[in-house]
């Protein structure tokens, strides 16, 4: 068993045993090699289930909203991306810093099951474990080692903050930022931007046409933390329930604008979208524009900073007076 998992278990067990927290959010393994859902650990003895493996991806931060309602203090394990979600909730006044005990986990990237399935027959895979910079793939008929970097999730390839930006304890040494992320971060946006405007519309229409309005993107997003969402409102109903392309665009574009300047690029919306809609391209497009008009800004790095779209500055480009 990896030492990373052991460190998680020890930290959680200790925090629960001495009563610093009454709940710890981490990850555990489930039935399949690629399943590492969030675990809710409420007693030191239950900490054994915790695991940190190539698939401990899901951002546990949004669960803090409900968890802190019935627990005075909650422990949470966060990767770099997850930690920025905590700053998101702090800055949006949806969480108090003293309500959470943050265990930081420097992370050099998580594995994409689809990339692994493309190389190894899925039926034969029993376990995929991280060993240093390699993935150890245990198969029904043997095992193989491959470079973990070749199997990274798309979102990890563009990650600029692999180390937690807010934490109480760091469980191991920080890791280096991947080379070339500043280019890869906007590569897809640039490629879409190069399309002619009609072609660009066709592209997005085709993507949004697949949207089934399951709202997984919104529900998973720590920046979507409104107590009640306008799109759920029945009176007046802003969003029809029928699967109509105009309404879907209405939903997706308004959501993108609502998280603009607050999206901290965890990429979970895109990763979990069952329809494979490249949502991160929209979020990053808005980040590009914010950088251009308001100066470079990355959300979720500092809960005390002044977000460009949440702060008025005299030198901001004028908008209202230009007719």
């Amino acid at each position: 068993m990896s030492t990373a998992s052991e460190k998680l278990r020890a930290s959680a067990a200790e925090a629960l045993a001495c009563g610093r927290v009454s709940l710890v959010l981490g990850w555990r393994k489930k039935d399949f090699w690629w399943q590492s859902p969030v675990a809710f650990v409420e007693a030191a003895a239950e900490a054994e289930q915790l695991s940190f493996d190539p698939f401990s991806v899901y951002n546990p931060v949004k669960y803090l909203l409900e968890a802190t309602e019935c627990h005075e203090k909650v422990g949470v394990f966060v990767k770099g991306c997850d930690s920025r979600g905590i700053n998101r909730l702090l800055q949006d006044k949806r969480l108090e810093r003293e309500q959470v005990l943050i265990f930081g986990l420097p992370c050099s990237g998580k594995a994409d099951p689809a990339k692994i399935r493309a190389v190894f027959p899925a039926q034969k895979i029993r376990e995929v474990a991280q060993e240093g910079e390699e993935l150890l793939v245990r198969l029904t008929d043997g095992q193989e080692r491959v470079a973990a970097a070749d199997f990274l999730l798309e979102k990890c390839l563009t990650c600029r903050h692999p180390n937690p930006v807010v934490f109480d304890e760091l469980l191991w040494e920080p890791v280096p930022v991947r080379a070339g992320v500043d280019v890869s971060r906007f590569a897809r946006v640039n490629s879409v931007a190069q399309k002619e405007i009609l072609e660009r519309y066709t592209y997005w229409a085709r993507q949004f046409d697949r949207c089934i309005r399951c709202f997984a993107c919104r529900n998973t997003c720590p920046a979507c933390n409104c107590r009640s969402c306008i799109f759920d409102q029945a009176e007046p109903r802003w969003l029809g329930k029928a699967s109509d392309l105009a309404d879907t665009m209405n939903y997706q574009i308004i959501r993108a604008f609502h998280v603009a300047g607050r999206c901290f690029e965890c990429g979970e919306c895109e990763r979990i979208c069952p329809a494979g809609i490249p949502l991160q391209e929209m979020n990053r497009r808005l980040i590009m524009d914010i950088d251009k008009y308001f100066g470079p800004y990355e959300a979720g790095l500092d809960a005390g900073d002044s977000p460009p779209l949440g702060t008025y500055r005299g030198e901001d480009p004028a908008g209202f007076d230009e007719s």
Partner: peptide, 9 residues
């Protein structure tokens, strides 16, 4: 239920 994010997937 605690893990459920109430999406319709």
């Amino acid at each position: 239920y605690r893990r459920c994010i109430a999406c319709g997937t």
